[in-house]
Design a protein around this nucleic acid. Structure first.
Length: 155
DNA sequence: GCCAACGTTGGC
DNA sequence: GCCAACGTTGGC
């Protein structure tokens, strides 16, 4: 069982969008960055915990949690000429991009902002702090527990 | 919308 | 196989 942080722009796909899907299960697609792709394809497993992070918005923050409902499979959008995620270099024989399904689990009473994370010494080693531009990243179990606790507002 | 960090691409 | 150019990401 691994823990991850997934970033999404709330204008594109927010935590409440996921919550509104049938069964709270949505496809996490459109990943077009190789580092993120490699984590997704090689390490993300069904049942893993996901911190849902809103990026490129007014208050970047972890806003809730989800779990991985289905491990990596080829992202259908890469083969769809109508999609903005279409990649002419990808083929069904040799898919280039992958996606997973995740299921909504919780919305935090108190979103944990990037600012708060940066100010917390216990979270200084998070990949989020160390390497800014990575949309899928591993989280330690200690970091997971602390962020869940902060999100619940019981600090 | 600027620009920095990172990984891939491709000309030579 | 070097390395400059390019694409993506995301905080500010």
């Amino acid at each position: 069982m691994n823990y991850w942080l997934f970033k999404s722009e709330p204008d594109e796909y927010s935590l409440s969008d996921l919550q509104g899907e049938p069964g709270g299960i949505g496809r996490w697609d459109g990943i077009r960055n190789y580092q993120a792709r490699n984590f997704l394809r090689d390490q993300v497993e069904e049942g893993d915990g996901v911190l849902f992070y809103h990026s490129a918005c007014k208050v970047p923050a972890v806003v809730g949690t989800a779990r991985v409902a289905r491990a990596a499979y080829p992202d259908p959008a890469q083969f769809d000429p109508e999609s903005k995620y279409c990649d002419p270099k990808a083929s069904t024989d040799k898919p280039r991009w992958y996606c997973v399904d995740i299921q909504w689990q919780s919305a935090f009473a108190h979103p944990v902002s990037l600012k708060a994370i940066k100010q917390n010494p216990a979270l200084a080693e998070m990949v989020l702090v160390k390497q800014g531009r990575l949309s899928i990243q591993p989280v330690t179990s200690a970091e997971w527990r602390l962020i869940e606790k902060l999100g619940a507002g019981s600090d």
